[in-house]
């Protein structure tokens, strides 16, 4: 299991290949990538992501560990950036590897659901019209309840 919090960009292709080649026991590898989305009007200047150093790493480790406990995974990786990035830049990725695809898909969704509202990151959108903090969505909080059983 690997967790990385970094300011610099990551190479999605390289990370995916390295991850996929790590275990020969895995028949299924799922990766998800979050990308900076422009406004519908195309006015986004940049996104600035703030985080809570220390707590961020601990929270991501806990989320990854919970996924490893809950599903039959061979491995999991989370990479999440902070700082300024422009539309189209990759913000984060998760990767899961399992013997079979169901575990890999479900665990990746679980990682994403918890990353959204339990990892201490805050996104600010800066556009020509000003700056605003991205509000958390109720659906993101509701999404967590489906994993409680």
């Amino acid at each position: 299991m690997e967790v990385r919090v970094q300011e610099e960009p990551f190479d999605l292709g390289l990370e995916s290949v390295v991850f996929a080649n790590k275990t020969s026991a895995s028949g299924a590898v799922v990766t998800f990538t979050g990308v900076v989305r422009d406004t519908p009007e195309g006015t986004l200047d940049y996104m600035d992501i703030e985080h809570y150093p220390g707590m961020t790493e601990a929270a991501l480790r806990q989320i990854a560990q919970d996924a490893l406990t809950k599903w039959s995974l061979e491995d999991a990786t989370i990479i999440h950036r902070f700082g300024k990035m422009h539309a189209g830049e990759m913000i984060m990725m998760v990767a899961t590897a399992a013997r079979h695809r169901k575990d890999a898909f479900e665990a990746a969704e679980y990682l994403m659901d918890f990353l959204k509202s339990r990892a201490p990151f805050w996104k600010k959108e800066v556009s020509k019209n000003g700056a605003s903090w991205v509000a958390a969505r109720d659906e993101d909080e509701t999404a967590l309840t489906r994993w409680q059983e």
């Binding site: 979050g34 913000i91 984060m92 201490p120 990151f121 509000a135 958390a136």
Partner: peptide, 26 residues
């Protein structure tokens, strides 16, 4: 101390308190 808590929680022994809006990771 870097773990999510709630407003009713005791501060006994706590060294670090952080306040922030709901998180928007991912």
């Amino acid at each position: 101390d870097q773990e999510l808590s709630n407003f009713d929680a005791s501060l006994a022994g706590v060294r670090e308190v952080a306040f922030f809006p709901p998180m928007t990771g991912g």
